[in-house]
Simulated scan of single mutants.
Amino acid sequence: MDGDRMISLEERGVSRRTAMLATGGALGSTFALSVQPVQAQTMITTPADGLTAGEVKIKTKDGKDMAGYRAMPATGQGFGTILVVQEIWGVHAHIADVCRRFAKAGYCAIAPELYFRQGDPRGIPEIPKILSEIVAKVPDEQVMGDLDASVAFVKAEGKADTAKLGITGFCWGGRIVWLYDAHNPAVKAGVAWYGRVVGNATPLTPKHPIDIAKQLNGPVLGLYGGADTGIPVDTLDKMREALKAAGTPAAAKSEIVIYPDTPHAFNADYRPSYRKQPAEDGWKRALAWFKANGV
């Protein structure tokens, strides 16, 4: 990192050590610069005792090495498999912690670094810059392929059962949950946390959840905040209508839960948006959803 950039970070109240950790630390070990300072008083930290947890390298279909964070029980095998899809900040400490939470519940959870071709958002302090320079350049097709590669990685390890496959994701990753559920026939169930369901078609994002309701392979549980200014409740009503009109078993079984007076990112315990009661209720629902649907 050049000197001018470091000065600007320190002017924002970000220490040199924090900046270096965010840009050079192990995957899942630090928080992205753009969410500093974290809310330590509400942040959940799940220990790795009894787990096999840490960074792995996943070979993609185009022969590249993609980093990922994987956590699973240290003993046993045949665990259900959960794909964990990142927020816009990539696989930082919160996403790694979510993987460990699933591992403590008996799953193998893996979170691939899905922006690795476009850049690393963890070291960029400006959210608009992350959105324009990285997120906006990530094709849905690329993401689907990289998630397929993550499933193949888990299968090759031989510890987890990828026939019991689930997917969950947050914000940007919440939208991806719906899309990947429709993409991969092996998906048994999905849990989408506050991912948008409608949008404009573009070459990189040709379809949105409302467009693929009929193609869902496993039922999806959507968890949303009623006060989320970026995902209006009327769009969720339209998604419910699309699911009802789809007429398929997976769509009929899908469910959208809206927590009243709750903002976007209510599960992000390291941010001011965190809401303890909806987050805890959503987590219980997510675990029950996966169990009920064979994950």
Rank of each mutant, 00 (worst) to 15 (best):
E11Q: 13
E11V: 15
R12N: 00
R12W: 02
R12P: 02
G13E: 04
G13F: 05
G13V: 06
V14N: 12
V14F: 09
S15I: 15
S15Q: 13
R17L: 14
R17Y: 04
R17K: 08
A19G: 15
A19I: 04
A19M: 13
A19Q: 05
A19N: 15
M20G: 06
M20I: 13
M20T: 11
M20Y: 03
A22W: 09
A22Q: 15
T23L: 12
T23Q: 14
T23P: 02
G25E: 09
A26K: 10
A26M: 12
A26P: 02
L27Q: 01
L27I: 14
L27K: 00
G28E: 08
G28R: 09
G28P: 13
G28C: 04
S29E: 12
T30F: 12
T30N: 07
F31C: 02
F31M: 01
F31S: 02
F31G: 07
A32V: 08
A32Y: 10
A32T: 12
A32C: 14
A32M: 10
L33N: 12
L33G: 15
L33I: 13
L33D: 12
L33V: 14
S34N: 11
S34Y: 03
S34Q: 08
V35C: 03
V35F: 06
V35R: 07
V35M: 15
Q36T: 14
P37D: 05
P37N: 10
V38L: 14
V38P: 00
Q39H: 04
Q39T: 04
Q39D: 10
Q39P: 06
A40G: 11
A40M: 07
A40I: 03
Q41S: 14
Q41A: 11
T42W: 04
M43V: 08
I44K: 06
I44L: 07
T45F: 06
T45A: 08
T46E: 04
T46A: 07
T46M: 05
P47H: 03
P47C: 01
A48F: 05
A48P: 01
A48C: 06
D49W: 03
G50C: 01
G50S: 02
G50Y: 04
T52N: 07
T52H: 01
A53S: 15
G54E: 02
G54N: 00
E55Q: 10
E55V: 04
E55P: 09
V56Y: 06
K57G: 06
K57F: 11
I58S: 07
I58Q: 10
I58C: 02
K59I: 14
K59M: 10
K59W: 03
K59G: 10
T60Q: 01
T60I: 05
T60C: 05
T60K: 06
T60G: 01
T60P: 02
K61P: 06
K61N: 05
K61E: 09
K61F: 11
K61M: 10
D62E: 12
D62G: 05
G63H: 11
K64F: 07
K64C: 02
K64V: 01
D65V: 06
D65R: 12
M66R: 02
M66Q: 12
M66E: 04
M66A: 04
M66N: 09
A67Q: 09
A67W: 00
A67K: 10
A67D: 08
A67F: 01
G68Q: 05
G68K: 05
G68C: 13
Y69N: 07
Y69C: 10
Y69T: 04
R70G: 00
R70E: 11
A71Y: 06
A71N: 07
A71L: 10
A71R: 04
M72Q: 06
M72I: 11
M72L: 08
P73G: 00
P73Q: 02
